[in-house]
Design a protein around this nucleic acid. Structure first.
Lengths: 346, 346
DNA sequence: ATGAAAGCGCTAACAA
DNA sequence: TTGTTAGCGCTTTCAT
């Protein structure tokens, strides 16, 4: 194994000079530097990561924590989700010369066995990216106590003060609702992607109500359905709405998969989309493309990118900074289900 | 930051005793050990990874190298692929107390800039898992020259002697084709799961042709379609085949999602499956179960698992061992689309 | 511009 | 059973 000593000996200089030449941490005579670099190249020398980490107290690693793979996370919203996230993270990391540790809890671990916590304490990584964590509140609390740099990706329902990157779900729902209103709809139903205890959901709900109010449309409790991640919840919601005397003319679907359920219901019941029922969804997954569903994108690539940027920023800062909440802009992809489709497009 | 010294001081013992107690590398009096452990617990001590690595020359990391994410790799063969791979790798790693570094080349890097090589030389990892590498031959050569432990996952066209874990795609395709031949089919079409530049694809293609030849069936170029990971490619393939004067009586689908596309085409065109068209696919995903598609399993989970096992075995061995080629067995799951279905089964 | 030397946190002889 | 000590390969004062 070739070490800095080998280089030093070969170049007839001290190890510190080699270090200076390699890191630019002190002036080195051009000729000396040339010689050193040449030898480094010839001997294929690379400094030992652990030796360097030990003294600099920096690993140049960051760790991405995800829920169990194989569980919904990778499957949620189609397969592009995770690769998009990685792509975003990877680009920033590569640019800044960081490496990525990928980890997940294998079983529900009690407090001190949490892998993320261990990695932090063992100084295996300089910071942590928490993607859509599940049993998290406790982990976040511990990380905070350690004053260890970390950023939450795509999840908002924390009580703890945390750095976080996510789409602005309030604005997104406001946008979707307003889009329908502009198309002339007055009876607009809302399906939540999940229980309202999740901030994603309640934010969307608020955005929906706010948009109605802004348009002077009165909010109707009967037009709200709390869905989940099953296609069937969209189907059920549609069934529920269409059972009303005053059927809505448009539905805001919480996820693309719910929209598919709505489409199924409509097909079964001879309802034309978008003429009888217009649909606008969230996610803009492959499902949306496949079924021609108008859907608002929640850009996971950007979440990865901005999240990593934020984390790196916090790592390099000496003092802790105010918890920051980065908001990723969204985009509404118009397709056939909302009634604003134009064949020229896309 | 709490170090081994803090523990030693607090416990009134030397650092070596603490080390011994923690690692079990020397006998320690039960009472002493108890005291040490209690303090470790209280102070939440975790040994520094880099300090330990530096002296033990072991990182307890392994690195998984993948082609660019966001490219076909994650999409290839449906979305479960990557998560299955990770699951398999993760289980073994977790069991053995290893961590996972995930990396990919961001641009075609010249020899010495290859990330995998750098990580090896910097001793950031104890071994490397190479998943389906693209520009690899050179990397493999370099890794071999370094005598650095690595294992190839899911790819076989190496000239270099390497450890490798894969399904035998040639055999798998041969098996699928022969299965159809045995059922009496003579006009058998083939859909590639992707471009033939991928070894998975060309191997399958070869296996298909070989099986035909073995049965004295002449190969017909018109019976070949290069598909992709969209359902539509199956649909298109079916349309293309059925446009021929001599329609095939059976189709080998490259992925389950393609088979679904074929089914859709058949449904639309009043073709009975398996009577008019028999279908045999690869992947044996949930899609296959759901649609009753006969499908051959290519178990990526096992590839991950066995690959990691093999790598870890090589890491712990002192001398280098004979390149080993682990072949993951496949299994053809008979369902309704191939005509060999029997209601008693499953 | 360069070198000597201390020390990062740990393990592992070797002594006691 | 425990302590002393010498490194592991590097960075970084502090001299020169």
């Amino acid at each position: 194994m070739v070490t800095i000593k080998d280089i030093a000996r070969e170049a007839n200089v001290s190890v510190s000079t080699v270090s200076f030449a390699l890191n630019g941490t002190a002036p080195v005579a051009p000729e000396t530097k040339r010689r050193i670099l040449e030898i480094v190249e010839r001997l294929q020398y690379q400094p030992s990561a652990s030796a360097r980490s030990l003294v600099t107290r920096k690993t140049n690693n960051i760790a991405l924590f995800v829920p169990q793979p194989g569980k919904d996370m990778f499957h949620f919203a189609g397969n592009s989700l995770f690769s998009d996230l990685l792509q975003g993270i990877g680009e920033v990391l590569h640019e800044r010369n960081y490496n990525l540790l990928l980890a997940w809890e294998h079983e529900k671990a009690a407090d001190e066995e949490m892998k993320a916590l261990q990695m932090a304490k063992r100084k295996m990584t300089d910071g942590i990216l928490l993607y859509n964590p599940e049993n998290d509140e406790q982990l976040v609390k511990n990380l905070n106590k350690l004053h260890f740099p970390f950023v939450l990706l795509g999840k908002g329902n924390m009580e703890q003060p945390v750095h976080r990157v996510d789409v602005d779900n309030f604005e997104a729902a406001f946008h979707n609702t307003t889009h329908l209103i502009k198309l002339g709809h007055k009876r607009i139903a809302f399906i939540s992607p999940g229980p309202l205890k999740y901030l994603v959901c309640s934010d969307r709900f608020d955005g929906y109500k706010e948009a109605l109010e802004a348009a002077n449309i009165k909010f109707d409790e009967a037009y709200v359905y709390i869905g989940d991640d099953n296609e069937n919840s969209g189907y059920q919601a549609a069934a529920s709405f269409c059972g009303l005397k005053e059927k809505p003319t448009a539905i805001i679907s919480g996820r693309d998969v719910q929209a598919v359920g709505i489409l199924a219901y409509c097909a079964e019941n001879q309802l034309m989309v978008p003429d009888d029922v217009a649909i606008v969804s969230f996610e803009n997954s492959e499902l949306a493309v496949k079924h021609g569903i108008t859907s608002l994108s929640t850009d996971v690539y950007k979440i990865g990118k901005e999240g990593t940027r934020l984390l790196l920023k916090n790592i390099s800062r000496s003092r802790e900074s105010q918890p920051q909440n980065v908001v990723i802009p969204f985009e509404l992809h118009i397709r056939k289900t909302c009634g604003a489709w134009n064949d020229q497009e896309e």
